[in-house]
Amino acid sequence: MSFTTPYFTLPKFVYLKPSTLEEALSMLKQYKGKAKVKAGGIMLINLMKERQIVPEYVIDLKNIKELKTINITQRGVEIGSMVTAIELQNSKEIKELCPTLAKAASFMGDRTLQHTVTLGGNISVAMPSTDGLTALMSMDSMLEIKSAEERRFIHSSELVIGLGKNSLKEDEIITKIIVPYNGDVKGTYLKFLNASEVAIATVAVTAHLNKKKFALVVGALAPKPYYFNNESLQWNWEEPVSVNIQRASEIVSKTVEPMSDVVASSEYRKHISKVLTARALKEVFGGE
């Protein structure tokens, strides 16, 4: 076994480490199409080892301080794209105001990787196996996207367009994740794993009980998570919780069209989505 063959080694590239966002964006513009940004690097480095991506330049975002902050503003909770999974779990603000995300972050790879994995990187990979986007969609989060020329905002549900594909242009990066502040919040994130710890289905629920509003998102079934809310789940606040949960989980299982692969069949994923939906709703709304 040779350690110099591909898979163990990385292809050649030039490593760039900008210390400001402006610098990073101008590098991305200069090397448009030839560069990849590196956040935690966990997915990027694996894809490069497999030669699935072979960028000429790697622009490391790790030195950019402004991408690492969590701020409470009028718009809501603004999370820098380079905030790590561990920081999300330890942050008092995130635990209080974004409980769904704090819980999802505890699933973003193993504990050691969580020191390295970033929220921006996690959602950019656009793989059904990642947890960040499912949680963000349930919180109706917006993403701030920047290039050297432009700043734009998209809804988190507009990010993923296919397996491993996101809607960003080559010179754009996600700079912030903005979670609107909607008052009293309750949330949970459940993940159902097979024996080798690969996700069969995940369910995120974020509820604002004072506004009689909630969103439920089912992930791991397909590249793009499935979005539901109290309206599409025909939730009737006058009826008992158990009746609502029964109806909601039926609607979820009728709506989703999970992929079939070596991990699980479509039917099994459908069934687990239904079970997890009921469990998650029970956790948030109570009921026998």
């Binding site: 990385l10 490593y15 480490k17 690097g41 966990i42 480095i45 694996n46 490391d60 790790k62 050691t112 990787l113 020191h115 390295t116």
Partner: peptide, 13 residues
């Protein structure tokens, strides 16, 4: 001081 996996870390980093 933080645990990292060195197969996922660049030396330049």
């Amino acid at each position: 001081g933080i645990p990292v996996k060195s197969c996922m870390t660049l030396s330049v980093e």
